[in-house]
Amino acid sequence: MSETRIREEICRLGRSLFERGLTPGSSGNISVKLDDGGWLVTPTNASLGFLDPARMSRLGPDGRLVSGDAPTKEVPLHTALYQTRSAARAVVHLHSTHSVALSMLPEINPRTALPPMTAYYVMKCGHTALVPYYRPGDPAVADAIKGLAGKYSSVLLANHGPVVSGDTLEAAVFAMEELEETAKLYLLLRGLNPRYLSPAQVEDLTKVFGLELPEHHHD
């Protein structure tokens, strides 16, 4: 896909996420890795609903701004995911309501923030890690992400929001949507003793769809 098309896709999918209320105001950011090792990322203080393809921040392989507006303050977060997940070609970070709410609950297991509630959650997101709170843009969040050793494609930032990587931008967006819907399901069913997928059912999904899931134990 050409760089021009990638810029257009970031704007199209960003607007879709914004219009469906998945990230309010000027929150959230999107990046896509380019063939030359650099990447495109949404600018700082930009609403995902009103992006301009010509003003996208173009970073070089060293992470420095090459052209466009100043990039999001969350560049360290995106960089950490690209450095630890070699297959990642896109990263999406939102402030979606249900995922943020989930990240604030005291019972959440940092190694598996959500139980295996649906087949599509397991297929799209695998398992989701929870990392402690850091202020937005804090470079220390990169160390927290690196501490996951690339095992997770979906991560919750406590009291902040979800971040998901994918092998394409569309895959990252779809996984993000699945994470948000599963967080919503969890909140709806919290305290009702719902039936989750069994270990055997998760193992079947893993084998059939070639999933690579980190070892986990849901308490």
Rank of each mutant, 00 (worst) to 15 (best):
A90Y: 07
L188V: 08
L130H: 12
S103D: 09
R195D: 11
T168F: 04
S198F: 03
G137R: 03
S165W: 02
Y186N: 01
P76N: 10
A140P: 01
H98V: 00
T84H: 06
L102H: 08
D204R: 15
Y82H: 12
A172Q: 05
V92L: 03
N109T: 12
I108P: 01
L197R: 03
V173K: 08
Y186F: 15
S165L: 04
E177C: 08
E170G: 00
L188S: 02
V131P: 03
A129G: 04
P76E: 11
N193H: 15
D204K: 13
L169R: 01
K146A: 15
A172H: 01
E203V: 01
I108W: 04
L205P: 05
A140T: 03
T128I: 06
A140S: 12
R195H: 12
L185S: 09
L189V: 12
T168D: 08
E180I: 07
V141L: 13
D204W: 13
A200G: 04
K73C: 07
K124A: 13
T112F: 02
V163R: 09
V75H: 03
P194Y: 07
A87I: 00
A172R: 00
E177D: 11
G191P: 08
A144L: 06
H95N: 12
Q83C: 03
M117K: 00
L185V: 03
T84E: 14
F174E: 12
L187S: 06
L187R: 13
E203Q: 14
Y120W: 06
A113M: 10
R85A: 01
L81F: 11
T84M: 09
R195K: 14
E181Q: 14
V122H: 00
P136F: 11
G191C: 07
P162H: 05
E178Q: 14
E107N: 05
R111F: 13
A101T: 14
Y82N: 06
Y120N: 13
E178M: 13
F174W: 06
H160G: 00
A140F: 01
Y196W: 15
G191F: 08
S165Q: 11
Y196T: 07
L102V: 13
P76F: 09
E177L: 14
L102W: 10
L185N: 09
P199Y: 09
I145W: 05
V202A: 05
L157I: 10
A171K: 14
S86D: 12
D69V: 01
A119Y: 01
S165V: 15
V122F: 03
P199V: 09
P71K: 11
T168S: 15
T206C: 08
P106R: 09
A70R: 15
L205V: 07
A101D: 02
R190L: 14
E178H: 00
D204S: 10
A183M: 05
H95I: 09
A149D: 15
E178A: 00
V141P: 00
K73V: 14
R85K: 07
R89G: 02
S96V: 04
H93M: 04
H160C: 04
S154T: 15
P194H: 13
